[in-house]
Amino acid sequence: MTNENASPRPVHSPCIGVCALDEKDLCIACRRSGMEIAEWGVLDDAEKRAVLALIRQREADDKQS
């Protein structure tokens, strides 16, 4: 039996505490942009999931480079 009133699990930050932006304004550790890092606390879960999808794409692009 599922509880329809239960809130979904929150989307956690991909931050691992190594905060340094590269020449493309992307964190070398979590691959978020400076703006994505700054706005993370005010994004809703759908927006956070969209950022996580961008991160996965950036990681895939990095592997192809």
Rank of each mutant, 00 (worst) to 15 (best):
residue 38 A to Q: 10
residue 27 C to I: 00
residue 35 M to V: 10
residue 45 D to K: 00
residue 27 C to F: 08
residue 4 E to D: 15
residue 27 C to M: 00
residue 21 L to S: 03
residue 20 A to G: 08
residue 2 T to R: 13
residue 48 K to G: 05
residue 54 L to P: 15
residue 45 D to Q: 02
residue 35 M to Q: 14
residue 2 T to S: 09
residue 42 V to L: 14
residue 56 R to A: 07
residue 11 V to N: 12
residue 65 S to F: 13
residue 48 K to C: 12
residue 58 R to H: 11
residue 13 S to I: 13
residue 26 L to I: 00
residue 1 M to Y: 12
residue 65 S to L: 07
residue 15 C to L: 01
residue 30 C to F: 01
residue 37 I to T: 08
residue 54 L to M: 13
residue 54 L to K: 12
residue 33 S to Q: 05
residue 45 D to H: 08
residue 19 C to R: 05
residue 28 I to V: 12
residue 24 K to L: 03
residue 43 L to A: 07
residue 48 K to A: 06
residue 31 R to W: 09
residue 30 C to T: 01
residue 19 C to V: 11
residue 16 I to W: 00
residue 7 S to E: 13
residue 34 G to E: 05
residue 55 I to A: 08
residue 36 E to K: 11
residue 29 A to I: 00
residue 29 A to L: 00
residue 8 P to L: 05
residue 9 R to I: 11
residue 36 E to I: 00
residue 12 H to F: 06
residue 20 A to S: 15
residue 35 M to L: 11
residue 42 V to Q: 14
residue 54 L to C: 05
residue 5 N to V: 03
residue 65 S to R: 11
residue 17 G to T: 05
residue 45 D to L: 06
residue 31 R to L: 07
residue 55 I to V: 15
residue 40 W to G: 14
residue 16 I to V: 10
residue 28 I to W: 14
residue 43 L to P: 09
residue 65 S to G: 09
residue 8 P to A: 14
residue 28 I to N: 10
residue 46 A to Q: 10
residue 30 C to M: 07
residue 32 R to E: 10
residue 40 W to Y: 12
residue 36 E to S: 01
residue 21 L to T: 03
residue 55 I to R: 03
residue 19 C to Q: 02
residue 10 P to R: 02
residue 11 V to W: 11
residue 65 S to M: 04
residue 21 L to E: 00
residue 19 C to W: 15
residue 54 L to N: 15
residue 54 L to Q: 09
residue 29 A to Y: 14
residue 39 E to H: 06
residue 40 W to T: 04
residue 41 G to F: 07
residue 62 D to Q: 10
residue 21 L to Q: 02
residue 15 C to V: 13
residue 41 G to M: 01
residue 27 C to Q: 09
residue 39 E to P: 01
